[in-house]
Amino acid sequence: MKGLILAAGRGSRLLPISATRPKHTLPVGGVPIIMRAVQALREAGIDDIGIVTSASSEAALRDVTLGSGHLTFIRQAEALGTGDATLCARTFLEGQPTLLYLGDNLFGDSLRPVMDALDGADAVIGVKRVPNPQAYGVAVVEGGLLRRLVEKPRTPESDLAACGVFAFQPRVLDDVADLPPSTRGEIEFPEALTAILARGGRVRALEFTGFWSDAGTPRDLLDTNAYFLAELRPRVQGQVVNSQVTGTVVVEPGAVVENCTLTGPVWIGPHARVSGSAVGPFVSIGAHSHVSGASIRDSLVDAFTRVQSPERALSRAVVGRHALIGPPGEEGLQLVVGDRSVVRL
């Protein structure tokens, strides 16, 4: 079986963070989202993995996956939907069964049962019970089989949301190729499941019971970061000097922590420097960042960022790369705020 990760999307709900790089490169629990997708497929036993990118995202995705083994990159020329992205990989798939993974989704459960459920079926869809099914594609399931799939219904027939992972037999690509464009002008892969049912085919629904998120908004990104931080095991490979440490804390090689209180789970990236600060719980600090005189909790601070003695504590903050957060100057607050930023004072 081949693995195919779709990672050509822009991630508009994560602007402005995603304005300069694909959201799949954002770290959660210290690991880029795209790498967690690759790891999930490999842990399921799939080694031959393709990643569908856009022209603007390919270089960044190649960069963050460097050193992770052989990956095949396939470019989608235009943003014409998940079905079109899947068809772009037709040569790579070589007529083999495929595990299709929407690259911004993250799971606590193994993907192996999705592969196993394909035996005797045309396709498999992963589903998860959610409190707000009207925000998702909703699966109506009877006896473990998909009966219909309805996109964001006003009155959902079930609480089972399609959760971004599918398996399918090679002939399903013909169903995808025959799909008409949606009202958005895109070819949507889930519509192929409806086509399979219309021709009398068999689609199994596999319910996930563990963690699932598409990390599509800042709130979701922070919740996902917290989940993977909680899964860490303690490890200190950098220096921790004159500091109080409780809970699960990871200090990567080259990082230096001085005169701090760390309350896990906390992840401090390679060559970061943290001094005179209270950090945690549920905080990740990216590589080469400098944090001093700060109080930070429930936050994601990315690489190459400086947080220097801010006047107030940071909580539920998402801070991108190369950012600067510091105290007010003599003339009051100084802000350089780009398009679609969020500032709460």
Rank of each mutant, 00 (worst) to 15 (best):
A161G: 07
G137R: 10
L173H: 14
M115E: 14
D175M: 04
A85D: 01
G164W: 00
D175V: 11
D109Q: 06
T91A: 14
D175K: 14
Y136E: 00
A195G: 08
G103V: 07
D122I: 09
N105F: 06
L93N: 11
V130P: 03
A117Q: 14
L179G: 07
D116H: 09
R112M: 12
V124M: 04
R148M: 12
E186P: 05
C163W: 01
A177G: 04
Q96C: 14
G95W: 12
G185W: 06
K128C: 02
C88N: 15
R129D: 09
E191F: 01
R184C: 07
P97Q: 13
T91Y: 11
S110P: 04
P153A: 12
F189V: 04
A85I: 01
G164C: 10
I125T: 12
V127I: 08
T183W: 05
D84V: 09
D122A: 08
A123F: 05
A139L: 04
V114I: 15
L145H: 15
E188M: 06
A195P: 12
T86R: 02
S158T: 08
D116E: 14
V138A: 14
D159T: 07
D119K: 09
G185A: 06
L87H: 08
R90Y: 11
E157Y: 08
E191L: 11
G137L: 11
N132D: 03
T86F: 07
T86D: 10
L149C: 15
N105H: 11
D116C: 07
R129N: 09
A85G: 07
P170G: 13
G83I: 12
G164H: 02
V124F: 06
E142A: 15
L106I: 04
P131H: 13
V150L: 14
S158M: 07
G108F: 01
G103A: 02
D159K: 11
R90W: 10
V130C: 12
L146H: 13
F168E: 06
D174F: 13
R171E: 09
D159C: 12
L160S: 03
F166A: 06
E186W: 00
L99A: 05
R154S: 13
K152T: 12
T183H: 15
A89F: 05
V150Y: 08
